[in-house]
Every structure is written in C-alpha cells, then in structure tokens.
Design a binder for these strands. Structure first.
Lengths: 240, 240
DNA sequence: CGTATTATATTGGTCGGACCACATTGGTCT
DNA sequence: AGACCAATGTGGTCCGACCAATATAATACG
C-alpha cells in the first residue's frame, strides 16, 4: 500500500496541475487539508513537502501559494503525462525531441573522449539492429538499451541524470501504446548501418547526422503509435 | 533564518554526497538523528523527505538507505557544486556542455517553428553583441539573456524546465569566478555576426554550427576563469 | 556445524494535542 | 481614505504515543 502522505500529495498535485487553483492563489491551510483527507497534520505536512519540491507550490508562514508550471521541477512531467486518458500529444513530442537530443549529445561526448573500447561497445548495440532479426518487443528493448548505454558512455553526470529522470517518467506512460507501435525494422536496420559506419570512422558530423536520423525514426514511430491509439476506440484508456 | 529541517537536510545531504555513508548503508534512525540535531523527530522527518526527493536516500520502514549518486535528482547538482572551496572542474565543464546543447536544441526548435516574429526577437539579442560595446558585466548579462530567450522561444516545456533547473543551480556557484572572467568581446562579436546571418537565412545547419561556436567560446571563457581562480591564492575561497 | 525459523527490538508511518513566531485580516482611530 | 493596531490564522516545531513492517538476535532443526 502506498503511504498516506503519498496519496495526499498525488491528489493535491493533480489539483494544482489541473489548474483548480489559480497561480498565486493560496491553498487551504494544512489544518483544513488534514480534515479533508482525514489525516493528521503531520502527514499533510509531508505531502506539502513533496509539492514544494516539485516546485508547484511555495509554502511559507502565512500560507502555501501555487506557482507557475514552468517553474516546476523536472519530476512534474510524469504528473503532466498521467493527466487524462492519454498523455498530451504535444508534450510527448517535446519529450521525445529532448531525449533524442540528449542521447545525441552523449554520442558526441563519446566520440570526443576517443575511447576505442567504449565506441566498440556501443557499436555492438548498434549492430544488433541489422545483424539479427528482432521481434517487436526485442526491438523496443534494443532501442532503449542503445540509448542508455550511449548515455552511460558520455561520462557526463548531469546528462545522465536528466536523461534517466525523463526516461523513468516517460516510459511508463508509453506502455499503453506498446500494442499500437509498428516498427519499420528495415529502416531502422538501414539507419543503424549508417550509424555504425560513422562510428567506425570516428566521424563526428556523420555520427551526429546518422544518430539524428535514427532518433527521428524512433520519434516518428512513437508518434504514429500515439496517433493510432488516440483514434482507436478506447478499450483500455487508463492503465491501472 | 532558515528553517530547522532545512539545516538538517543540508547537513545530511552533505554527509551523504561527501560519501560519509557507503551506498546501501543505513543512515542513523530518525530518532537518533533527532538527538544529534537537537530537534524533534518531525523536523528530521521533513528533512529526510528532502533527501528522499533528492534521490540520494531510499527511506522505508526498517531504515533509510543511501542510494548511488547517478540515481539522484537534478537538484543534487547545486550540492555537488558547493562541495569544497571551488566547484569541481569536470562537473562545471559537463554542465556547460549540457547547457550549451540544450540551448542549441532550443535554437533548432525555434527555426523549425518558423515564427518570423520570434526569430527576429532573438536576432535582437544576438545583435547586441556586435552593435554595441558591452562592458564585462553587461556582456555577461547579455549572454545569459540570449540563452534564456532562446529557451523560451523553443516552446518546449521539458527543455525549459531542465535548462532553468541547471541554470539556477549553476549560476550562483559561478559568481565567485566573476572577477576572473576575461571575455574576448571581439570573438564574441564575430560569432554573433555569423549567428545572426544564419538566423536571417533560416539555415538550420548554419545556425547550429554558429551557435555551437558561440557556446564553445562561452564555455572556454568560463573554464579559463575557473582555472585562473583555482591557481590564484585563496583570498575568497568560500562564498557565504 | 550450518541453516531455517521464530521471537524480539528497532524503524518508519501516523496520530493527537500543544506552543511559538510570523503573516494576514479586519477593525479602530485619526 | 489612510495609517495603525489587535485578533485571528498559518506554518514551524515540539512532545509523547501507537501501529505495522522490517531488521536483528535467539532458537530450533537438519
């Protein structure tokens, strides 16, 4: 069972993110919230701590006030994604853009580090896309694995943290779309070959271009799955 | 005055980040910590909530255990930066790489959106670097302003959040270095011209290249200032 | 002797009530 | 109407207590 203050913070977070309080407006007092949630004030207090660290409220003596969404912490993403039956399409697209770019940066750092060993390791993951016939599920896992290994190899802590944070929030929200994904393994294989070659030559620009193409294909795939899911009668809107 | 649980969480955060507890090791119990900090358990509890959301400990019935740093939240950066007299050089460099890349992504998004109005707005900030003679301080502000406007224009929420989060943690840590910065306004002006031209032509590749050059110069400047500060006898090591 | 299996102590999660300092609010006085 | 001030509300902190889950020590078993 989830803890009580987690339930409270989740509910309050949704209230705020849904815009049920205007920006700058005061939330009910901790005592009132305690009554509403049938909880002790301490529990409410811990829940508020979470909202505060999510960057969506500012709590001070005198009251807790709602902040603007673009002042929030990265962790709000998951909450923004889980609003409604399906995640917001624009947000999904924006996240994909960012993730792809981050991995691209990682690739760049990888090349600049000039570690033959690690480059070869990455190439191993790239080759998986054209050396073997991958099933739908395996293909999906391979894509994620490549990204993660790439990020690891960047040896850039902030980059890793950002990417992991985005990933952890994004992947679960995409699971309901898994059934709708139609991966063009041929094109992926093609792109992978180009990428592999670029890696072999240590050609930064080529790697960048190849990886961008690879990422773009990945993004297209997900967006297509998303659109398909959206136009398909509900059957399984929520995933709980 | 800062609140008590903030003091506690700061101190505990430093303990953990400094590696005074091994990964997986249990922290002292909340009751013990309450004694150590001469505080009530509730206050300690709120402090622990912070550590938990920083992603550096995992608290469960039975005890709170230290997690690995690369599982942390983006917000640890500021704590990592404030360790020691001067921030870690590698970390600073990594952050600069990421920030520059993020702004570059923003620029890309800006061009793809094809909003003449906003592109012109950005060009205004770019032109500031070669249309006027900027003092040291004004130049610094102009650089920051350009980045922020660029990010705004991307209309990408996750991107904005990430960049702002990094910025807010990074900028304060760099203030002690302000005196050591030596900006080559000439080269900045040169790069700005190139960038402005690329923006005018809506040439994505050119914008990317120009902006990367601009960013690289920016990064060099800061790293140089950093190295200079490090080799200079202390005078003002800490900034409190 | 080493390994399951209990019992016990410890730990976090929650509760209720209480006090303080500060912010807000509303009323009073000018 | 504006400045001032008291009453009220709010978050920050404290105390002591209970429960359920976990960890640890003691025990029984093979």
């Amino acid at each position: 069972m989830t803890t009580k203050h987690d339930q409270i913070s989740d509910e309050l977070t949704e209230d705020v993110l849904q815009g049920r309080y205007r920006v700058g407006e005061r939330l009910p007092s901790e005592r009132d919230l305690a009554v509403r949630f049938d909880a002790n004030r301490g529990a409410v207090r811990e829940a508020m701590k979470r909202l505060e660290q999510l960057g969506i409220v500012d709590v001070q003596p005198g009251g807790a006030r709602v902040k603007d969404t673009n002042q929030a912490s990265l962790d709000v993403i998951s909450h923004l994604l889980s609003q409604g039956a399906l995640p917001d399409r624009h947000l999904v697209d924006q996240i994909l853009v960012v993730i792809n770019s981050l991995v691209s940066i990682a690739a760049e750092q990888l090349l600049k580090a000039r570690s033959d060993e690690e480059i070869e390791k990455i190439r191993g993951f790239v080759r998986a896309f054209f050396e073997q016939e991958l099933g739908k599920e395996a293909h999906s896992l391979a894509r994620i694995a490549l990204m993660q290994k790439m990020l690891q190899s960047s040896h850039n802590l902030p980059l890793q943290i950002i990417a992991r944070t985005l990933f952890e929030q994004f992947v679960p929200s995409m699971e309901p779309l898994a059934n709708f994904a139609q991966v063009d393994t041929q094109r992926f294989a093609q792109n992978a070959k180009t990428l592999d070659l670029a890696l072999e030559k240590r050609d930064l620009a080529a790697v960048r271009a190849a990886f961008d193409a690879f990422s773009e294909l990945n993004r297209e795939t997900m967006v297509a799955a998303f659109d398909l899911a959206q136009s398909t009668p509900g059957q399984e809107a929520n995933s709980l």
